[in-house]
Design a protein around this nucleic acid. Structure first.
Length: 596
DNA sequence: GTTTGTACAT
């Protein structure tokens, strides 16, 4: 096809002109190219109808994820005299990937379409608009669209259904997602299976995610690399190493492409399941590594307490000109915090500013943690009060816990006040403050907190630990009676208690909330979820099998001591992933060197 | 012109 001239625009028949336009726009790889094509089309002075056609094609080609692209798309749309459904759909699609508030903006366009009466929204409109609500994510707007889909009879479209499913999965509404998924019997496609598995994985319902993955295979649907990312990340969340290894072998066996995203998920999985060497191995095998891959690696090293490696990887990343972002610095700064490297942390904080990265709440959190763990309470406090954004509850809680541990009651006072202002109903705060009062034997205040909790109907997040035995995740909560083998576990706990006494360890009963007798406090400690899970591991496996436990909260200090004793008296290696990092117990000592 | 994916401070 020869280059189009303004002369052709006046002489060529419309269908030929249109095919020229299509050809020109098809070759646009990015937003700049779209603009260049637009400029060329303007110079051609196309006839009115062809010009409108060109605008709608440009609009469809314009979905670059930048704010500039969004306003460009709006501009194009406003120049189209009688926008077709295709035009509305293209605008919505462009906004969903590039607008700062995709859900709200999309709903506005959708309403505008309804007000215009014609054209009618179709399944494309709903699919694109739902996508915008999923990336936001915006449950309210999404539900409005769900009702629209129903009213307009567009619900049966597989694209609309997958869109709805994905919306609910992204909003962590697994029950709603599952309802859509269940209604899709017959036309569950790969995307639907993947979105549902991803939904379970996101909320940590690992057994459900893996169960659905098995069902998917039974249904004869072949998973792709996108599915596997969700399956692997479910294993990572749960710390389910054996399952993760099995899934990795499955990926190799099926010849599923291990691309950038899947490699990153594998690095994350091996790191979070305690095999940092294997994570490095996956990282080294990658042909291309982006910011997320580097960040996953650095964060992985950080949670293993391997600060030197983490910082080495970070320098290598900079040398290779891969741009770090906020998340990378979460890894770098938390590595410093977990090893007490205050000056190193300060240095990297400046590096971050020098690179023009505006600190996120999490980055501030890392610095506060860094100062707190090193006992620099005054520095932590002035850092918090000098933050460029208002500190959130996590920041105040970090400061509160640290100042409580260093008996800095001046800071305790102000931090707890701010914390309760920000989060009057968070159960975590009640527990924290109750513990604070309990450790000072202020039982009237403890009681007051307990009454407040009842009044506000606050339910405490229970400590929960899990251990994987034969491919199944066994979960324990504090004082859990529900496990079928609880009798044997209790017997073993008693035996452990004897070892603990013989080792000369005195239970740190201050960790127990209630104002009960010392003896009952000891019993309460013995029923902590991590201790139940470790005991169950001792019961069900033999040396040299490593006992691997994952806990949702931080390790109880007393249980940490007891784990050391168990590792020695039973000659077993125990690895516990708590909310913050890994603890590896060998022959009576822990890899965290008791620094936490 | 549709749909599914990864790193995140206590």
């Amino acid at each position: 096809m020869h280059q189009l001239k303004p002369r052709d625009a006046a002489t060529l028949p419309r269908h030929l002109l249109e095919s020229h336009v299509v050809d020109l726009i098809r070759r646009c790889p990015n937003h700049l190219a779209v603009r260049a094509a637009h400029a060329r089309l303007l110079r051609l002075r196309l006839p009115r109808l062809t010009a409108a056609f060109a605008l709608s094609k440009l609009l469809a080609a314009s979905c670059d994820p930048t704010a500039a692209a969004a306003s460009y798309a709006r501009n194009l749309f406003d120049q189209i005299p009688e926008p077709t459904a295709f035009c509305y759909n293209s605008l919505i699609r462009a906004l969903s990937s590039s607008s700062p508030a995709p859900a709200a903006d999309t709903v506005l366009v959708y309403r505008r379409m309804l007000r215009a009466r014609t054209p009618h929204p179709n399944s494309f409109t709903l699919a694109f608009a739902l996508k915008a609500c999923s990336v936001a994510p915006a449950l309210g707007e999404g539900r409005q669209l769900h009702s629209q889909a129903f009213r307009r009879g567009l619900e049966p479209s597989p694209y609309v259904q997958t869109g709805l499913l994905n919306l609910y999965a992204k909003c962590e509404e697994v029950a709603l997602a599952r309802a859509v998924f269940d209604a899709m019997v017959g036309d569950r496609n790969l995307a639907a299976w993947s979105a549902m598995i991803g939904g379970y994985s996101r909320v940590g319902m690992v057994n459900e995610a893996l169960g659905l993955f098995r069902q998917m295979q039974a249904a004869g649907v072949n998973p792709d690399e996108v599915t596997m990312v969700s399956v692997i990340s479910a294993c990572a969340k749960a710390g389910a190493l054996d399952l993760g290894r099995w899934v990795h072998a499955f990926i190799d066996r099926k010849g599923i492409t291990v691309d950038l995203e899947l490699s990153t998920a594998l690095i994350d999985m091996y790191a979070k399941c305690g095999l940092i060497e294997r994570a490095k191995w996956v990282f080294d095998a990658m042909v291309e590594r982006d910011t997320k891959a580097w960040s996953a690696m650095i964060v992985g090293l950080a949670i293993h307490g391997l600060v030197e490696d983490a910082l080495k990887f970070f320098s290598r990343m900079l040398e290779l000109k891969v741009r770090p972002n906020n998340v990378t610095f979460i890894g770098v700064l938390s590595a410093c915090a977990h090893s007490g490297l205050v000056n190193e942390g300060r240095r990297h904080w400046s590096t971050m500013q020098a690179l023009g990265i505006r600190p996120s709440m999490e980055n501030y959190g890392c610095m506060v943690d860094l100062f707190c763990r090193s006992g620099l309470l005054d520095e932590a406090h002035s850092f918090v009060t000098g933050m460029a954004i208002p500190p959130n509850s996590v920041i105040w809680r970090t400061l509160l816990v640290a100042s409580k541990n260093s008996n800095r009651f001046d800071i305790v006072e102000s931090a707890s006040k701010r914390l309760l202002e920000l989060e009057p109903c968070n159960p975590e705060n009640y527990v924290l403050l109750s513990n604070l009062y309990a450790s000072n034997s202020q039982w009237d205040r403890v009681n007051y907190m307990r009454i407040k909790m009842k009044e506000n109907n606050v339910n405490v997040v229970a400590g929960c630990s899990s251990i994987e035995i034969n491919g199944y995740l066994h979960k324990f909560v504090v004082s859990d009676d529900s496990h079928p083998e609880i009798k044997d576990i209790r017997l073993l706990l008693r035996e452990i208690a004897d070892h603990v006494i013989r080792s000369g360890h005195k239970p740190w009963t201050a960790a127990v909330l209630h104002d009960v007798g010392e003896e009952e406090k000891e019993v309460a400690l013995c029923e902590h979820s991590e201790r139940l899970a470790i005991a169950y591991g001792l019961l069900k496996t033999k040396a040299p099998h490593i006992i691997r436990v994952v806990k949702n909260l931080r390790f109880c200090p007393d249980c940490h001591e007891v784990a050391k004793i168990i590792s020695k008296s039973y000659n077993r290696e125990i690895i516990v992933r708590d909310r913050v990092r890994f603890h590896r117990f060998v022959q009576g000592s822990c890899s965290c060197k008791d620094f936490w």
